[in-house]
Amino acid sequence: MLEIQNLTAGYGELEVLQEVSLHIGPAEIVALIGPNGAGKSTVIKSVFGLTHIARGMITFKEKKITKMKTSDLVGLGISYVPQGKINFPSLSVLENLEIGAPAGQDKALLTKNLSFVFHKFPALREKREKPAYTLSGGQQQMLALGRALMREPALLLLDEPSLGLSPKLQKEAFTMINSLRADGIAIIIVEQNAKKAIEIADRTYLLEEGKVVLEGGREMITHKKIKSVYLGGRY
């Protein structure tokens, strides 16, 4: 579904990624792991048109989308959930979801998508009238994911979805993400938690200093590079 070929990109003059290539197909979960500054977030930001692309090509469903405007990408079926402030705190849960839908969408379709999201995340249905800032951290993640789903995306780009969550909530978050695969959605996750990422993903790419240094499936967890550097850490 998505193909990135030899992407060299960054911010302004600074080139963060060097000739990065990766691909993902429908209903696949692909994880990007690596140390801080490796360029993981930059990859997905580049897909979403938020970086300066020097060289390389990105195709989505056979269509070239390199350097396309963000607003056009949203319409193609790609949703992006960024890191950090991921919701509209003073808008209600319902409004946060509705705002994720395309403008002027058919009312029936909107209702259908809302039901889908509430079905996936029952906690959100309970709090639908409450402002988003009253939600817990885990619920905030759900809300952000839910909003991304309102566009019925074919491809989801998630930047550190487990950030700031307790281990219990992280588990819940990953379970949620996993379940989305069943709906045919392709998901690229950027993750700090290497172990969890490899476990949940079908394939994982390890990035270091803007380059892909390792690629593989779940067997990667036994790779010596992964074990020594990342699993000995805090997580």
Binding site: T70, V74, P82, N87, F88, P89, S90, E95, G100
Partner: peptide, 13 residues
């Protein structure tokens, strides 16, 4: 929404 989170609002179009 724009007031709350301008970056996010442009991301969602």
């Amino acid at each position: 929404a724009v007031a709350d989170n301008p970056e996010l609002s442009s991301i969602i179009g």
